[in-house]
């Protein structure tokens, strides 16, 4: 056992250092392969919607769906600005935009969980617009598919918010430079990916098919 430990540390000492550019290329490829693997998960959910719902859809609030989509879009925009800012060494702009992206993501998450899922069983209207959804997970194929799709997406939004807050916290301590900020780039790509998934989920859930 001790021999193995000794050999490992010996190899570590003499291991050739991999150039940062090479590391970066490997990291990027790895991240994109991971995102490609996630495509099967979201693709399966997307396909399920068409198999089980066909050319129909449940009665969902168009206003909540559209507003949530716009908010996620702005969140992606702020994340882009955050990554651009650190790439050009603008630390305050990087931090502010990362925080805005996380905030917008949190608003999207609350809109899905509190308003669309209506976990607190609230009711109310604003300018004639119903603020809270009625669809329950047990409402047949409509409830099942809707909660599976929005639930899996919301889980990714939540993890994305946590990741953004981690890079924000590390960024405050000066962990990223214009030359080295792979952490920021990776989280930005992940966050935009969550937006891409919603680009397909939004019309599939809210816009395609006739209301039952």
């Amino acid at each position: 056992m001790s021999t193995i430990t000794a050999k490992t540390s010996h190899d570590d000492v003499h291991a050739p250092e991999i150039p940062y550019a090479t590391q970066l290329r490997s990291n990027r490829l790895g991240l994109w392969l991971f995102l490609f693997s996630e495509l099967f998960l979201f693709g399966a959910l997307f396909t399920t919607r068409f198999v089980l719902w066909g050319n129909t859809r449940p009665p969902l609030s168009q206003e909540i769906g559209l507003l949530a989509t716009v908010i996620l879009l702005f969140s992606s925009f702020f994340m882009y600005r955050s990554e651009t800012a650190i790439a050009y060494g603008d630390q305050p702009k990087f931090l502010n935009n990362a925080l805005l992206a996380a905030l917008m993501g949190a608003i999207f998450f609350v809109m899905v969980v509190v308003m669309e899922w209506n976990v607190f069983r609230l009711s109310g209207e604003l300018f004639g617009i119903e603020l809270f959804g009625h669809l329950k997970p047990g409402d047949g194929v409509y409830g099942g598919v809707f909660y599976a799709m929005t639930g899996m997406h919301a889980l990714h939004v939540l993890s994305g918010i946590v990741f953004i807050l981690i890079i924000w916290w590390n960024g405050r301590r000066g962990a990223f430079t214009p030359e080295r900020h792979w952490g920021v780039e990776a989280i930005a790509i992940y966050w935009h990916y969550v937006d891409v998934v919603w680009v397909f989920f939004y019309p599939a859930l809210y816009l395609m098919g006739k209301v039952v």
Binding site: L24, H192, D195, V196
Partner: peptide
């Protein structure tokens, strides 16, 4: 534009 997929086959560092 946001995810910069072209960086995958670019020779560059930050």
């Amino acid at each position: 534009n946001f995810m910069h997929i072209a960086r995958l086959w670019q020779e560059e560092s930050h």
